[in-house]
């Protein structure tokens, strides 16, 4: 719809600006708080312009951490988070695209049953199956390992379903043309389905990366060693100190830094992400 009404345009912009302000202002405040000494935040009147403690706070948080609240340096926690989020996102995509491929293109006994079993796991998120999952992970000796952090979160019904829906829209003739051109199932998967799913994979990657990055409950359970802590846990540990005021500047610096990787992923994948959600290359 193309309309040329200045008043409407103005109204639309005002609404958008208000929306952005509501979302962005707290983030800005967090940033401001991280650049002042911790006392500034506790004084009751919050400064609205950045202070001069930025370099000091950030370098302290990044490289030495706060041992009193049991928080290792942020770079370590961020690396852990990154490894976990990447493993989860890539693992989910790999497993889902393969299971969707099997379900859509192969006739095997109980195919429908297999599909519905995968689908039903949607009703069993981590929180519901957390005790038995912990038991399994513990028995396999995967506590305090990257494998223990990521593998239990890798299976994904949603992604499988998404890929299945996409594969169903691939015309049969394309499969047949590839068969006549001498492409076996795996070659068809590699040469046709993978490149055609590129945008879907990108969109999923963004969503799943953020999902993995934001994991809190599961890392909290399976990690006891400081070297395995993830950043989202770190925020909580910093804010939750006994017998003292929380060091809000430290907390806010951690929050800001924790936001950076997901933001970078979204910005980097923006084009593909939108494409993957909107159109399908066919």
């Amino acid at each position: 719809m193309v309309e040329n009404r200045p008043l409407l345009t103005l109204l639309a912009h005002l609404a958008l600006i208000a929306g952005v302000a509501v979302v962005a202002f707290p983030v800005y405040l967090a940033f401001v708080a991280s650049t002042h000494p911790s006392s500034a935040f506790l004084s009751g009147t919050l400064p609205l312009v950045p202070g001069d403690h930025m370099g000091e706070t950030y370098s302290r948080m990044l490289f030495s951490g706060v041992s009193t609240s049991g928080a290792p340096p942020l770079w370590l926690m961020m690396t852990n988070s990154l490894i976990m989020a990447l493993s989860i996102a890539i693992g989910k995509i790999a497993i889902s695209i393969l299971s969707a491929f099997a379900i859509v293109y192969f006739r095997f006994p109980c195919r429908a049953l297999a599909f519905w079993m995968i689908f039903v796991t949607l009703m069993l998120p981590v929180e519901v199956r957390i005790v038995p999952t912990f038991e399994v992970v513990a028995n396999l000796g995967m506590l305090d390992t990257y494998a223990g952090l990521s593998i239990p979160l890798i299976a994904s019904a949603t992604a499988t379903f998404l890929f299945r829906q996409f594969f169903l829209t691939v015309p049969d003739e394309l499969v047949e043309a590839a068969r006549i051109d001498g492409a076996g199932p795996m070659r068809f998967f590699r040469d046709m389905l993978l490149p055609l799913s590129r945008t879907n994979m990108a969109a999923l990657f963004v969503i799943l990366f953020i999902y993995g990055w934001n994991q809190y409950l599961w890392p909290l359970l399976v990690t006891t060693d400081e070297s395995q802590y993830t950043i989202v846990m770190g925020i909580k540990r910093l804010a939750n100190v006994a017998d003292a005021d929380p060091q809000w500047n430290n907390v806010m610096a951690t929050v800001i830094l924790a936001m950076v990787p997901p933001v970078l992923v979204v910005i980097g994948m923006q084009k593909l992400f939108v494409k993957g959600l909107v159109e399908q290359e066919k």
Partner: peptide, 16 residues
């Protein structure tokens, strides 16, 4: 199909 030494032209072309 690949071993029959035939080539097929489809109605919707089925180009990759």
């Amino acid at each position: 199909p690949a071993d029959r030494d035939i080539a097929m032209v489809f109605q919707n072309y089925a180009l990759y």
